[in-house]
Amino acid sequence: MIKDTKITLIFVIGAFLSFFLDGTITQIFNLQFDNTFLMVPYLTIMWFVMAVIFLKDYDVKIMIWSFVFGYVYDSYYIGIIGIFLFIIPLIVFLTRYLLKVVNPFFFSSILIFFIDITVVMSISYCLDRLSKIASISGSPFLVFVLWPTLIFNILIYAIMYFPIQKLYNFFKIEWEN
């Protein structure tokens, strides 16, 4: 484990940016096709998954930050605390577990991200049904929300994978020199 405050700083700033972009993208770009197909950006989740993959050997305390951002996400966006507060740490845990089984190359990490987003959406759907936030039933959720969201997020993941890898590598090398 390598301790590096610069990498931690970049991780936290990036997490904040992706957190705000989640809301701004939903607000500015109308991510709804034909009034039926809905896409939800999960950039915060993407940032955490990538951090787990790229900062495997670094001591960044991603787990603790995931609780912080989970709380902020619930409080600022949803208004009910207890949903993303546990989903984001669960994703960090799940991704770490999957990394023991799979080697994180580009395509295999897309598969990891695919599983993560499916877990996020399913759990948040169940909890939202429980707290009466969501009122759509199971099959419309699968057809009109889950699939478009998966496609949208995986596209963004595929686009952002190499730039973010470069970003981390850039600061890693600088530190070694």
Partner: peptide, 15 residues
């Protein structure tokens, strides 16, 4: 002014 919107499929909320 609207600052943000809840990124959710079923929660229609503005901030």
């Amino acid at each position: 002014t609207v600052v943000s919107r809840t990124p959710s499929a079923w929660q229609r909320q503005l901030i």
